[in-house]
Amino acid sequence: MTGSLAARDLSVRYETLHGSVQALRHVDIEAHPGEVIGIVGESGCGKSTLVTALANLLPANARVEGSIVYHGVDLVNLDAHRRRLLRGDEIALVSQDPMTAFNPVLTIGDQLVDFQHHRKDLDRSQKKARIAAMLTRVGISDAEQRMKSYPHELSGGMRQRMAIAAALLTDPGLLIADEPTTALDVTMEAQIIHLLRELRREYNGIIIVVSHHLGVIAELCDRVYVMYAGEVVEGGEVDAIFHDAHHPYTRALLACDPARFPDRLERLPTIPGTLPNLTEPPAGCIYASRCERTLEPCRNVVPPCVKLSACHIARCHGVCG
């Protein structure tokens, strides 16, 4: 399908002084226009690595294997020039710290004009008009005034809105937001969730939302991939993930969220154990050392990808399709 995105057998290693960190291993995901996809998991599970790979923005010490097909083009095996072109116009990444998206010494307005360099058909004043309209759309009321400010003069919530506006100005077919609310207070978080929801109504590309916060994923996404230690362990429609999770990790993660319990708990639930070392990931199931119900093959056989329904999958020896 045109405009669709599919990563197949995608692996990413980071070469470091302490060895090769296998940050992403054999990941399969897909997304279609109009969908909001959630990527959820605890820190270090590879969420940022995955979306940075999708946006072609991995650091120099990263090695990629597998394929990322977008619009029928394989991004992994693209030459550098075409890759840059695609990145500018088609794929936009909004990161957790929106400050990194902006140059501190230029006004927001000047930078937003530059973000539209692909629009050779527009002159400066037309670009400015487009910015004003976009800022209004992301809920910034005094657009003209705000364009004259510098990044540090804006609050965290305002900067996040600006970063989303900047991303949308490039007319992306794929908008990725990596932890868009993690640095914000609840009230601002609710406003950004609201904004992303409003935007999706008129936007017909793909939106990918990355968060370790289950509430944000539940509020926003249509389909969700759950990651653990560099692998996708479960994927499915948001309702299936939150109400019919099959993978023991997904269940444990849900059970840990204090927001799911209205009455006071004497002890907060936890997941005993620690993440495996990603320079030497264990053979067999990646979650086996922390799992509540390990079976015979879990320690040494890689679990199969079990299809539970049309779009619900889990990688586990203990579930049956």
């Binding site: 609050s155 919530g157 305002m158 609840v186 009230t187 601002m188 978080e189 609710a190 406003q191 969730i193 609201h194 929801r197 916060h213 289950l214 509430g215 944000v216 994923i217 539940a218 509020e219 996404c221 948001v238 309702d239 939150f242 109400h243 849900l254 969220d257 927001a259 799911r260």
Partner: peptide
């Protein structure tokens, strides 16, 4: 504040903002 907290349940989505502005 209480109403702004996202609920980790897609069946209980809240579609309006409890508070606007900063």
């Amino acid at each position: 504040l209480i109403r702004s907290e996202p609920v980790p349940d897609p069946r209980q989505r809240s579609y309006h903002l409890a508070v606007s502005g900063e």
